[in-house]
Design a binder for these strands. Sequence first.
DNA 1: GTCTATACGAGGATAGAC
DNA 2: GTCTATCCTCGTATAGAC
Lengths: 197, 197
Amino acid sequence: MKRENTKQKLLDVAIDLFSKKGYDVVSVREITRHVGVKESALYNHFRNKADILDIIIDIFIDEVGKTSFPLDEIDEGLKQMDLSAYLQYQLLLFYKKMTPRMAKIWQIIYMEQFRNKKARDVVLNEIMGRPDKFYKKVFQVAFENDKLKTTQPETLAKMYQYTLLSLSWEQMLRHINGEDISNIIEKRYEIIRLICD
Amino acid sequence: MKRENTKQKLLDVAIDLFSKKGYDVVSVREITRHVGVKESALYNHFRNKADILDIIIDIFIDEVGKTSFPLDEIDEGLKQMDLSAYLQYQLLLFYKKMTPRMAKIWQIIYMEQFRNKKARDVVLNEIMGRPDKFYKKVFQVAFENDKLKTTQPETLAKMYQYTLLSLSWEQMLRHINGEDISNIIEKRYEIIRLICD
DNA sequence: GTCTATACGAGGATAGAC
DNA sequence: GTCTATCCTCGTATAGAC
């Protein structure tokens, strides 16, 4: 129990520090100092520094993979709502799942995606790929139900999802800069309005 | 002249190594070893390691700021071409300016944007902001000339440019992974086709 | 099983000799 | 301008105390 306690503390401190300063800048000594143990004690719980980041990314995969973008609920959802309401509903679901801890991990993954292969694959698969598939099906179903007028529902879906992606990117940069980001959230609804015309 | 020679060599090696491995991982000793001087010699040309990155980012600002996205050429361009041709033409201009050296610097800026304030501001201003303004005017002018049918040319412009942004992001990640990226280039033309319908 | 103490090589950076 | 010598911090491994 002492073991699990220390390990959990180390992980929490690491998530906090990594998200604030970046993985490379944070030292093992800094993490253990915050917990109150010597740096050598960390190696009883983690293989090395990289292992900590690895476990943090696994937490993200677990949370996102379990709960987000279920393909089999689309048909039913679009029976009850029109496309505009359904897209807004999906945005709300997304915000709801974004706990402070998950927001930190999200930031860590964005920060490390260019240097860490696992973080990069999470971005490609979980953040780009799976939502892409999800919204392609959403737009396809809406198209078949005459709820969307376009010649290319798949390309429109990609545009929608990739615009959201860039907005989340911009939001993260402005968040780090300490700028106001409430207007970026508003922009997402603007885009839904444009698409559903 | 010996000074300028060494400084230029150090800068070139730094650009190459930073783009391949990332700023933090590359050591001052590694850079100077490639040039053939001692690590302390580097401090005659640069204040510190961060100063090198700073200068590299300045090179990017200089190149992009001088040549890209001139607002005053839009009216004339759209007189000679329809919107579809003009967007394709702008893409080609962009590819043409992307020399191997600039591609490396581009990658460095993407890698460091979450940790380095100056890189972050370059992304926000030069990569997101200025193209955004440019395409907003393009779509506005096309709208006024009846070359574009929509109720919200500004939002559509943002969607177009932000979709390109995410594509460049995805392209960089797949490039680092050593994956094939030719189909991403094709996707840009698909999106132009969708918008111009 | 978990901790502290300690040591090693490598990192960024500086001072002073040539 | 470039060198050698030096300093402190880093990630990590090991030995031994409880």
